[in-house]
């Protein structure tokens, strides 16, 4: 961990910049900053053992001036860290927080046709099986091997 990193906590603005780098938005989908995602990430980070430490290590590995650089530069800075388990934990917490935000849920419904309510208790229609799809497959001669 760099010296600067050692003093970087999850309450610092650098977390917001890091999340914005991962989820910058694109005009349609909101960015991490627009959603204030850092707050949701802070809430989630304690939900699994080791995630807080992992995030702190990623923050600690960021160089001085990270927050002042451009999106492209920040992405370049992050690439060498990207394969690590710590970075994996960061992505998990960030996406987990992002994909349950009300604004994002709305887009998932509108743009992707995804029903965002919990799958139970209502479920979805279980259509009856349509046997006609088997017309061709049924016509094949048995081909299992005698033993």
């Amino acid at each position: 961990m760099s010296e600067a990193g050692a003093t970087r906590g999850l309450g610092q603005a650098i977390l917001e910049v890091l999340l914005q780098t991962l989820l910058p938005g694109n005009g349609t989908w909101p960015s991490a900053s627009e959603l204030g995602l850092a707050h949701a990430v802070r809430e989630r980070v304690g939900m699994a053992e080791g995630h807080e430490e992992a995030l702190l290590r990623v923050l600690g590995a960021l160089p001085e001036g990270f927050d002042a650089s451009s999106q492209a530069e920040r992405e370049e800075t992050l690439h060498p860290l990207a394969g690590s388990d710590d970075f994996g934990a960061l992505l998990l917490v960030a996406y987990d927080a992002y994909y349950v935000q009300p604004g994002v849920l709305l887009l998932l419904e509108e743009r992707c046709g995804y029903v965002t309510r919990p799958p139970q208790p209502d479920g979805f229609e279980l259509a009856p099986f349509d046997e006609s799809v088997l017309a061709r497959a049924r016509g094949r001669e048995p081909f299992w091997r005698e033993a």
């Binding site: 991962l22 989908w29 999106q71 492209a72 998990l92 994909y99 995804y114």
Partner: peptide
């Protein structure tokens, strides 16, 4: 899969983080 697992790469998916995340996710 659902949105979270899709974003995390699901079954062999290549969803990047950063500027291309949203387009590729969709």
């Amino acid at each position: 899969q659902g949105p979270l697992i899709t974003a995390l790469g699901g079954f062999a998916l290549d969803v990047p983080w950063g500027r291309n995340h949203h387009d590729r996710f969709e």
